[in-house]
């Protein structure tokens, strides 16, 4: 007994005996590996951790985690997790979802869970395609996307997932990608430490149905030009030689040459600034357009706000203090009793 208590957990403790069924080369493998690797750092026992997923390729995830887990139904992992978290606030709850699961069929539950700010971690695997149903466009696919269900191009304007989350008053939003394990690990850890709903969007490559969707952010040749890694307290600097920065022209962010920029105009990242977060989630240009802004990665925004489940516990404690612990006999009799002899 004492041995199991003192022996620190390792990533291996979190693997299961189930065969992993993702396609070879799928970005999901990388996320699974990173998640397993940060688990020991949560400081929680395996039995106190729960992974809940919806439906989709990534939603197989719980089967591969040696914790408690539930592979629920399409779009509803967030709703299942809400009920679990209200019931068992002390558990560490992780939601595994995809762009179709979270933003299409489960869009309603996602925004409502976010505004309630349950203390859960959401890993939103965004591959901009429906993989499990074999290649239809998703709510994050770009306009005009040619897929099996849109042979002459999609007519849908896509969601900007993090902007949507911020619109629902998310208390933690971050973005990372499958191809950068180090960054992913960092963001996952930060998300796990945030108390409240941590929304982590992960750019994840579907090498079968949407290969290269995020290549511009992961390819050595373009990555430094097209990505902007956020560090709180530091200016937004990027470029092959870190020669570019973002400066504010009034309220409009623009790419400037760092050497020539007026230091006072440079945007300094501040995770606690909700107005700046609104600007950062809007860095969402098509990388093919002229003068576009780089795509930010890292923690965009974090704030501390009350958690629904804690407030619920307080209400229960308050009601119990005010009215006394529930007495079933008094409840059953009510206040207007008469007796038949």
């Amino acid at each position: 007994m004492s041995e199991t208590l003192t022996k620190p957990l390792t990533a291996k403790d979190f693997t299961t005996d189930q065969d992993i069924r993702w396609c070879p080369g799928c970005g999901d493998y990388s996320v699974l590996k990173q998640v397993q690797s940060i688990m020991p750092e949560l400081g929680r026992e395996k039995e106190d951790i729960v992974f809940i997923s919806g439906i989709g390729c990534s939603s197989r995830f719980p089967y591969y985690m040696n914790t408690y887990g539930m592979h629920s139904i399409h779009g509803r992992a967030t709703a299942v997790a809400s009920g679990l978290k209200i019931s068992r606030p002390e558990l560490s709850v992780w939601i595994i979802t995809g762009d179709g699961d979270a933003l299409s069929i489960g869009g309603n539950h996602l925004i409502h869970m976010i505004r309630r700010n349950f203390d859960v971690n959401v890993l939103l695997f965004n591959n901009e395609i429906y993989g499990l149903t074999k290649g239809q466009y998703s709510p994050t696919s770009p306009e005009g996307k040619v897929t099996k269900s849109t042979p002459i191009g999609s007519l849908d304007h896509p969601f900007n997932p993090l902007k949507l989350c911020l619109g629902a008053d998310s208390t933690f939003i971050a973005r990372t990608m499958d191809r950068d394990p180090k960054h992913q690990r960092e963001v996952l850890l930060k998300g796990s430490q945030h108390v409240g709903t941590s929304m982590i969007e992960i750019y994840q490559n579907c090498n079968v149905f949407n290969d290269g969707a995020f290549e511009v952010y992961t390819d050595k040749g373009s990555k430094l030009q097209e990505t902007l890694f956020l560090e709180s307290g530091k200016p937004l600097i990027f470029g092959a030689d870190r020669e570019k920065a973002i400066a504010l022209d009034g309220t409009i962010p623009r790419v400037v040459n760092l050497a020539e920029a007026n230091e006072a105009d440079l945007m300094i990242h501040d995770e606690r600034n909700r107005f700046q977060a609104q600007l950062l989630v809007s860095f969402f240009d098509d990388p093919k357009t002229e003068g576009h802004l780089p795509r930010p990665f890292g923690v965009f925004y974090a704030e501390d706000r009350y958690r629904y489940e804690e407030a619920m516990e307080e209400q229960i404690a308050g009601a119990t203090e005010r009215m006394g612990k529930g007495n079933l006999d008094l409840l059953l009799s009510g206040s207007n009793v008469w007796t038949a002899e």
Partner: peptide, 26 residues
Amino acid sequence: KNFGVRSFQAEDEIAAMCSVIGASFG
């Protein structure tokens, strides 16, 4: 609530049902 009742007005019928599944799992 003093009977430990956690009453949750969910965002829709589906969420109400799913929250019950989460609670029962817990």
